Amino acid sequence: MPSFDTVSEANMVEVKNAIDQANKDISNRFDFKGSDARIEQKDRELTAFADAEFQLEQLREVMLTKLSKRGVDVRFLDNGKIEKIGGDKIKQVIKIKNGIETEDAKKIVRVIKDSKLKVQASIQGDAVRVTGAKRDDLQAAMAMLKKDIKDLPLEFNNFRD
């Protein structure tokens, strides 16, 4: 039976490349000269360091630009609160979301059931598996999910025929 998985996960290779580009861009900018502004990455967590809140905002803007140019959806980012560290320096932890949360998965299943398409949806951990008798029904379900669910960055993988 044909099926596919609906997932929400960022391409971490592209995220790493975008962060490297952003750090290189920041080191060359005149308004960041002499400051300790940088972005560090550990697994699914980014930490932005800056001297002032204005610089942190500029740092995030550069990072978002680089991420979007590399095709990473910025809806994956979950900004934490701004913390003061030694002296006048500040930092902000930005988490990269991975997987579909239970409420969102239930919403996807409800949208698919309400659509009256001849497909079934089931929650499989942090993904939603959609199965159907025909490939055309599955492609229609993909198009409908892209159109109806705007608040989540959805990707479709594991397509089986």
Rank of each mutant, 00 (worst) to 15 (best):
I90S: 01
G80S: 02
L46N: 00
K97I: 04
L59T: 06
R129W: 11
V119W: 00
K69G: 06
D88M: 14
Q41Y: 04
G132Y: 04
D43I: 03
F49K: 11
D126H: 09
K91G: 03
S122M: 13
G71S: 03
D136G: 09
L46Q: 00
A121L: 03
E45T: 12
D51L: 11
A50M: 08
R38K: 13
A121V: 05
R75V: 02
V128K: 00
G86Y: 07
K91D: 05
E83Y: 05
I82S: 01
A50P: 05
V109R: 08
V119D: 01
K91V: 05
R135V: 13
I82N: 02
R110V: 05
G99A: 03
A52V: 15
R135M: 12
G87T: 10
K107F: 07
L56R: 02
A133I: 15
A52L: 13
E61D: 15
Q55C: 05
Q55R: 11
A50K: 04
D51F: 09
I112K: 01
G71M: 04
L46F: 01
A37S: 09
F54V: 12
F76H: 03
T47L: 05
I96Q: 00
F54W: 13
I90N: 04
Q124N: 15
L77E: 02
K89V: 04
K91Y: 04
D136C: 08
E83L: 11
D78K: 11
R110N: 12
I100G: 00
R129F: 09
G132R: 01
